[in-house]
Design a protein around this nucleic acid. Structure first.
Ligand SMILES: [Mn+2]
Ligand SMILES: [Mn+2]
Ligand SMILES: [Mn+2]
Ligand SMILES: [Mn+2]
Lengths: 216, 216
DNA sequence: TAAAAAATTTAGATAAGTCTAAAAAATATA
DNA sequence: TATATTTTTTAGACTTATCTAAATTTTTTA
């Protein structure tokens, strides 16, 4: 199988990938908190294993088999996060680091039984979709709160930033997954927003609005 | 903290330790499926970290802090095995390899919550006692089935061998943890034994009797 | 479009954990 | 108790994943 380091690279390439551009060495170095030269070494290894398409200086894309592995790791990560929150009563800001370790437990039989045990959840505690056993993801159409307008309302459904600091702040403002909000006012000076939540008015900065996802 | 390899060495030293003798390099090499020279290297490292007392050529013993770490890993191993059997419905012969990986998940908060979630079980699926949060073990007094006599009876409470082959055999003979048996006859020629189980008579070899533990 | 800047790769080192082969120490045996 | 055998350690090498510094390629900018 693949080493822990290889799995982390594949997952990071997946997260950085989009339809247009390929993923650069520096993007990976930043995300993985390592040096560009280390990334280059690993890219050669992953290319040898046919998990990525890599042309020196041209960045990298996952092959189909690389993407399959990445999706399986993300599936494991999100199912373990769900387990930690729903079964062991952790808060949503406490589970990411643990899941970073647990996602590398190799048994697929284990993860499939865990999935069943929890009733096949579709989203993790941060609103991210959980890939099913075949790697299928249930995308839903989310917008950044910063991109909606006064009087628009909807359900908070995801976060772009997963840092404990941010998640704890949202918790305090009752801006958590599933909560319904509407936009009362947008301050032109700094693009900060005044929101109506289920129980109070909340004033959020544009940075916060830029990292919060909503289903209209 | 400690690496995965260090944790596995500490656990193995613990399992091989007894009151009298210290653990030898070769014993460790055999159990860990590695070479004696590799063991020597690691023993130096663990001694530098004050986790073992090591004198070249004289074998090794855990220090108090080494033992604490070993017991914590064993606690994790056995709690995860319990989880896999009781919550995810694995059989007792399927869980050891998975637990070998899961015992290295670092969070103690996680394992303590898992313990609570499962109702603080005292024994793992193989009858082995689960150390509590302070490393205390609930020893109970078990005898090898090979050491008891005709007409003795008791409850099957543990196994010395954990191989899937052996466990599957026991399952087939309904010689599983908690079952009550009594000795009908011991064949002098080969020390094999005829046992009365709850629903049938079973004839077991002396090898089997030597790996099965009973509470009288 | 040539020079400067930025991004990426190569070269050479290092640390952890393993190995084989050889040397040294401990133990068994005659 | 000397010699043979077994056990253990040492020496030197290899692999994985990382690093720094230097070289190379690409991109930007004047
Ligand atoms: Mn996460
Ligand atoms: Mn998540
Ligand atoms: Mn086990
Ligand atoms: Mn067990």
């Amino acid at each position: 199988m693949n080493t822990l380091a290889e799995e982390n690279y594949l997952k990071s390439i997946f997260h950085l990938s989009d339809a247009e551009e390929s993923v650069s060495t520096n993007q990976l170095a930043t995300l993985l908190n390592t040096k560009a030269s280390s990334v280059t070494d690993m890219l050669k290894k992953l290319a040898d294993k046919a998990l990525i398409n890599y042309t020196p200086y041209q960045g990298v894309r996952l092959t189909l088999s690389g993407e399959k592995i990445a999706l399986n790791i993300i599936r494991k990560h999100r199912l373990w996060e769900y387990f930690l929150v729903e079964k062991l009563n952790f808060k949503w800001d406490q589970v990411h680091e643990m899941a970073e370790e647990m996602e590398h437990i190799s048994s697929n039989e284990l993860i499939n039984r865990l999935d069943k045990f929890m009733g096949y959840p579709k989203f993790d505690p941060h609103g991210d979709p959980i890939p099913d056993i075949n790697g299928q993801i249930n995308h839903h159409n989310l917008k950044l709160v910063s991109a909606i307008e006064v009087n628009d309302s909807g359900t908070i459904s995801g976060v772009k930033n997963h840092s404990p600091n941010f998640l704890q702040y949202l918790e305090k403002q009752t801006l958590t997954i599933g909560k319904i909000i509407s936009v009362i006012e947008i301050i032109p000076f700094d693009q900060s927003m005044i929101l109506q939540t289920e129980n109070k008015e909340v004033h959020i900065s544009s940075e916060v609005a830029n990292n919060l996802l909503i289903a209209l």
